[in-house]
Design a protein around this nucleic acid. Sequence first.
DNA 1: GCCACCGGTGGC
DNA 2: GCCACCGGTGGC
Length: 153
Amino acid sequence: MSIEKKKYECSALPKGWQREEVIRKSGLSAGKVDVYYYSPNGKKFRSKPQLARYLGDALDLATFDFRSGKINSLLLRKNKKQRGTQFDYSNFLTYSNYCFSRGVRNDASLVPPIRQTASIFKQPVTVYKTQEGKVKTDFKHGPQEKPKQVCHQ
DNA sequence: GCCACCGGTGGC
DNA sequence: GCCACCGGTGGC
């Protein structure tokens, strides 16, 4: 039989990103599920910090739940200790809030949004509905490869 | 040498 | 005690 492995688009991330679940098949941790992400250009990611480093300012992962691949606003409360550079919360809106404000629910488990008005992404982004419950995001002239420094004025 | 995979543990 | 994260290595 084929191995339990699936790679799907991840709706909480920009178009082209994929999420994969791999079930451990041996050892003490057999049955444990490992989650990996693949960037549009095929780079593999095995942790949220790794993802965050790669994305830099291009996308805020504060509400991104790595394991489930979904947006979880509760993560904001449990502020993980931020090392080195400290994140500026004064000027951002979570992706889920953004979806909410657009009348898009992409996940049933979203908690009510915290009302905020701010620019969402630090990079131009287009969000549009395709089908029921699906959201696509496209970065305008987004870099193909590594997101380099984005100029914030 | 690479990388998929499981182990070990720090931080909670 | 759990689990997110990443080290290390076996198998290629």
